[in-house]
């Protein structure tokens, strides 16, 4: 039994209209970031529960210092803005300007990582001291991993915008846009993390 008889009648425009391929990669990335965000949400929920139901003895509690993480927050927020500038520059086809902003963003990311390292080495507690210490390192470490990955991606984007052989240009902005979305996400997570871990 065949049912596909009317196929021949389909007109040419009709077909080409059907076969247009839109780019859904940013949508896919956004869905992935929702998933990634849920991983963080799980960690946050665990941390808050530990705090609510497992109080430590008074002597075991350590007040985190604020200056360094506040600096870190500022660094990341600025880097979001500089990345945005890079994206705009690329769309206007000002590749050199874009590359400069990219390098600044990568530098800010590296500065964040360096200052995070400084904080790690000056903290008086280690990974296995108690459950807060463990959660602190797990959360900041998992986030730091994201920053590391993001910085590497920015450097790759920077390398690929070189002239004349780079593959990213105003014709092909997706890799830059994707990295930018990811970077904003990582910054957003940091802000939540900063509030929950340091301010609460």
């Amino acid at each position: 039994m065949t049912t596909v008889a009317p196929v021949e009648e389909a007109s040419k425009e009709n077909i080409s209209q059907e076969e247009v391929h839109h780019d859904h990669r940013l949508f896919g990335l956004a869905a992935f970031l929702v998933a990634d965000g849920m991983t963080f949400a799980g960690f946050f929920a665990a941390y808050l529960t530990f705090r609510a139901v497992n109080p430590l003895l008074p002597g075991a509690i350590y007040e985190l210092e604020l200056p360094l993480p506040t600096l870190n927050t500022v660094l990341l927020l600025i880097s979001s803005a500089t990345f945005h500038r890079a994206g705009q520059a690329l769309k206007r086809n000002e590749t050199d300007l874009c590359r400069r902003w990219l390098l600044i963003t990568a530098t800010l990311g590296s500065a964040f990582l360096a200052s995070q390292m400084v904080e790690y080495f000056t903290l008086p507690f280690g990974l296995t001291d108690n459950v807060y210490a463990s959660t602190f390192y797990a959360l900041t470490g998992f986030h730091g991993l994201h920053v590391t990955l993001g910085t590497l991606m920015i450097l790759i984007v920077w390398w690929q915008t070189r002239k004349p052989n780079g593959r990213i240009s105003s014709e092909n902005v997706f890799p830059l846009e994707a990295t930018e979305l990811y970077w904003h996400f990582v910054d957003g997570i940091w802000v939540i993390l900063f509030i929950i871990l340091y301010l609460l």
């Binding site: 799980g42 929920a45 665990a46 529960t49 530990f50 139901v53 497992n54 430590l56 075991a60 990974l127 296995t128 108690n130 459950v131 807060y132 463990s134 959660t135 797990a138």
Partner: peptide, 18 residues
């Protein structure tokens, strides 16, 4: 580490919830 180890201030029930 002691996420789920009560001796270190952790909590097994948190594992079950997650």
């Amino acid at each position: 580490t002691g996420f789920f180890n009560p001796v270190m201030g952790g909590n097994v029930i948190v594992y079950q919830h997650l």
